[in-house]
């Protein structure tokens, strides 16, 4: 994560608020959609689509928030269906399953902390670019 990375311009107050909201949106969605990982993505996607004509700073952060949800979606989906298969098919809890769940919780926790931090910083008008996701967003989000 690059803290206080440089951005092309100093965002205005309303831009900082909207950009920060994109991260808050994913946080609220995480709380609401914990058992169904797709809800997180849908909520962030709706916010992203709603702001696709916003200013560059807003679009950039909406895109980063959306992309960060994609990788979580994959690992959370696996954990969801693995749990369903245990509850309704096999009934067998194994060590790889427990280890996977702990790893998923760990990665979700890292993402949660990073998201809260980024939401706070962007609200202050600071630019925060995540490792990998920041570079990917630079590539996708055009000025």
């Amino acid at each position: 994560m690059r803290f206080h990375a440089t951005f092309d311009y100093v965002p205005a107050e309303h831009e900082a608020e909207r950009a920060s909201n994109s991260y808050l949106m994913s946080l609220i969605a995480v709380m609401a959609g914990l058992p169904l990982p797709i809800i997180n993505l849908i909520a962030t996607l709706i916010f992203f689509l709603g702001n696709r004509k916003g200013t560059y700073f807003v679009r950039w952060h909406c895109t980063q928030a959306l992309l960060s949800q994609l990788s979580l979606l994959m690992i959370n989906t696996v954990s969801f269906w693995w749990t369903v298969s245990i509850l309704f098919r096999d009934g067998v809890v194994t060590n790889p399953y427990i280890s996977y769940m702990i790893t998923v919780v760990l990665f979700n926790l890292i993402e949660l902390i990073a998201t809260i931090y980024t939401a706070i910083e962007t609200r202050k008008g600071h630019h925060v670019a995540w490792w990998f996701y920041g570079d990917l967003t630079d590539m996708i989000c055009k000025k």
Partner: peptide
């Protein structure tokens, strides 16, 4: 890093 973490975590006998 995800798979490495999973591998390392699974070294513990959680059962």
């Amino acid at each position: 890093s995800f798979f490495m973490t999973w591998l390392l975590v699974s070294r513990v006998d959680w059962m």
